[in-house]
Simulated assay, not measured.
Amino acid sequence: MSIKVHQLSKNYGAQKAVNNISFEINKGEIVGFLGPNGAGKSTTMKMITGYLVADEGTILVDGIDVAKDVVAAKSKIGYLPEANPLYADMYVREYLHFVAGVHQLKNIKQQTEKMIATVGLTNEAHKKMSQLSKGYKQRVGIAAALIHEPEVVILDEPTSGLDPNQIIEIRNVIKALSVNKTVLFSSHILQEVEAICDRVIIINKGSIVADDQLQHLQKNIQPTQVVQVQFEELVELTMLQTIPQVLHVEMVNPHIFKIETAAADAVRKQLLQLAVTNNLNIVALQTDTNSLEDTFRAVTK
Rank of each mutant, 00 (worst) to 15 (best):
L80T: 03
K10T: 05
V92G: 06
E293K: 00
K68C: 01
E192W: 03
E82T: 06
M47I: 08
G57W: 09
Q225N: 12
V299F: 04
A17W: 02
A14V: 07
K106I: 04
V119H: 06
R297E: 14
I170E: 09
V183L: 12
F231T: 00
A143L: 10
V183N: 03
E151K: 13
R297V: 15
V252M: 13
I77V: 15
E169S: 08
N278M: 07
L247A: 06
H126T: 12
A176T: 07
E260D: 07
L237E: 10
L274R: 00
D55W: 10
I221F: 10
T224R: 05
T159D: 08
I174K: 08
I201K: 01
L34V: 08
F296P: 00
E94F: 10
S22H: 02
V173K: 14
V209R: 01
F33V: 01
F185H: 11
K219S: 10
E260P: 00
D156Y: 05
Q15I: 14
I259W: 03
V200M: 07
E24T: 06
T49N: 02
V209S: 04
M90N: 00
I189A: 03
E157H: 10
R268E: 15
M251C: 09
M239K: 04
T224W: 14
V152Q: 04
T49V: 12
D55L: 04
Y95S: 09
A54S: 13
T277K: 15
N281T: 15
L155S: 06
T287K: 02
N220F: 08
Y51W: 07
E124A: 14
V71K: 07
G50N: 06
G13R: 02
D198H: 07
Y95C: 03
A54L: 06
V283K: 00
S130L: 01
M239T: 05
N220H: 11
V102D: 04
K258Q: 14
V119K: 06
Q15C: 10
S187G: 13
Q138A: 09
Q273Y: 14
Q110R: 03
A284W: 01
E24F: 06
L292Y: 02
R171T: 05
E94A: 07
Q191C: 01
G40W: 11
A284D: 12
N37H: 05
